[in-house]
Amino acid sequence: MGWMTLLPPLSGIWFAFAELLEQTAFWEAFAMTARTFGIGLGLSILVGIPVGVLMGISTRADKILSIWVNLFISAPITAVIPALMPIFGIADATVIATVILFSIWVVIIDTQAGITHVKDSLVEMGRNFGCSRWKIIIWIVIPAALPEIITGVRLSVVRAVKGVIVGQIVIALIGFGGLFNTYLSYFLMERFWALIIVVFVMSFTIIGLVELLERRIAFYARTR
């Protein structure tokens, strides 16, 4: 098989791209990807931040959870996907679970790091003025940890993008994973590359947006 079939000329890919946008299968896959990505990432952030805060302020929670978080953050989560399929079915739920397993750990770890690195003097200041523990956490500790939390969210977006793609590829029947599989089995290399480009561009757009947001918040990190 020649390289030409594998790497078709750009004009061909461009043509395939235009075709792709007319297909309902593409838009269905797109909607499914967006949906599972959004739900999975949202849950990761909504659960990850409170867990990270808890681990940052309670040594007991840290002791119980940190082994697992540290194990899973670098574990080959891909291996777990086949186990998710029979539990959650060949559907959205499996992809959502994959996205969560890819993206939640980094949110937890970065949030915790942010919380533990808050300057002691800020907490002492709050205590000095008679703030309750609760007020210190809400008014001082969490806002002070925000730059790290945002970094965690950005990294989790990167991982969620990978998770949503890897999940669909391993399942190979739904979403973009299904399309990739179909295109490859029928040697539709132009379409395959067009889809790869779509996926890459989508991920860069999302990550770029989050980076923009991060830079906006980072301004006060300088004085810490």
Partner: peptide, 12 residues
């Protein structure tokens, strides 16, 4: 940053 894993099926 990109989901490079999308390329892996092609390796076959």
């Amino acid at each position: 940053t990109a989901p490079v894993s999308a390329l892996i099926p092609m390796l076959t």
